[in-house]
């Protein structure tokens, strides 16, 4: 990490180890080219693509994005995804932060048991709740509804949210709480005026992580929502692929529409996102 060597020296040293450089370049191509390929296809028409699948766009057909958005329903799917994901992330953040604070700060009988029960469901295979959730949702008239999917998403992301926030909240110095108490803060004031502001970096991390995971969620969306007008983006893309298998160009445009929000979030918050993803795994 602490590499004081000047950049140029390092570069020449790296270039000398040609095999390593070759591996780096090859892996980077392998990792990044598929995405670049889809990006170029998204601004080419299907007939151009059929003529040559690997050509650089000669004319940039930005109007394809407009067509995908309005004529191929990707606008509807995008709106559905946004509605469901934003609502679910907002609610799960509030519920999760409150529960995490309670588990991190207060001593009470059953604290670790509650934590363990919440945490352990991270490893559950989704099928164990999938089929009966379908029954429950149908029973309550929440099948085929964005509200139903939102509720399920809140439940899905709750364990991870509590787990990440509990870990962070537990490291907030106890002195802060003692001082607040002496100043006459009540329990809820402490939560709102100390835990939330101090914990904001961790909260931001969970928000970003939850957003990306739910934005990409597929299994519950495909089982719990059937109406095309209510589908989220992943389901919409798959439906479009099923209906217009040959329309490579428009499928690529739809894929880019689904990916762009994630890429934007990543561009702005890459450090936070990576922190969130690594928090659970490093020991």
């Amino acid at each position: 990490m602490a590499n004081a060597e000047p950049f140029a020296d390092r570069a020449t040293r790296m270039l000398r180890s040609a095999p390593l450089a070759a591996v780096l370049v090859l892996y980077t191509l392998y990792s990044a080219l598929p995405f670049a390929w889809i990006a170029t296809m998204s601004v080419r028409t299907t007939s151009e693509i059929s003529a040559n699948h690997y050509a650089w766009p000669t004319v940039w057909h930005w109007e394809k994005y407009r067509a995908a958005w309005f004529d191929s329903n990707f606008g509807t799917y995008f709106w559905n995804s946004t509605l469901v994901v934003v609502a679910a992330v907002a609610v799960v953040t509030v519920l999760g932060a409150a529960a995490a604070h309670c588990l991190a700060r207060y001593r009470f009988r059953g604290n670790r048991l509650v934590y363990f029960i919440l945490f352990s469901s991270i490893i559950f295979p989704p099928q164990i709740i999938l089929i009966s959730l379908f029954q429950v949702m149908a029973g309550y008239g929440l099948y085929n509804s964005r509200l139903g999917l939102t509720l399920v998403y809140i439940g899905l992301q709750l364990p991870l949210t509590v787990y990440l926030l509990e870990g962070f909240f537990a490291r907030i110095p106890q002195d802060l709480f003692d001082a607040a108490k002496i100043d006459g803060y009540g329990d809820f004031e402490i939560f709102v005026r100390i835990v939330l502001p101090v914990g904001m970096p961790a909260i931001a991390t969970t928000v970003i992580l939850n957003f990306i995971q739910l934005w990409n969620e597929f299994l519950f969306a495909v089982v719990l929502v059937n109406d095309p007008g209510l589908s989220t983006l992943p389901i919409g893309i798959r439906r479009f692929m099923g209906d217009y298998f040959q329309d490579t160009g428009m499928i690529a445009t739809g894929m880019m529409i689904a990916v762009l929000p994630v890429i934007v979030v990543y561009a702005f918050f890459s450090e936070k996102l990576i922190q969130g993803m690594t928090a659970g795994a490093v020991k």
């Binding site: 892996y27 980077t28 990792s31 990044a32 598929p34 995405f35 390929w37 889809i38 990306i212 934005w215 990409n216 597929f218 983006l233 992943p234 893309i237 798959r238 692929m241 499928i251 894929m255 689904a258 990916v259 994630v262 890429i263 990543y266 890459s270 990576i274 993803m277």
Partner: peptide, 15 residues
């Protein structure tokens, strides 16, 4: 190297 992690399975699958 990290970007593929962010792509949904639908996008990765079709790709």
């Amino acid at each position: 190297w990290f970007t593929p992690v962010l792509l949904s399975y639908v996008v990765v699958g079709i790709m």
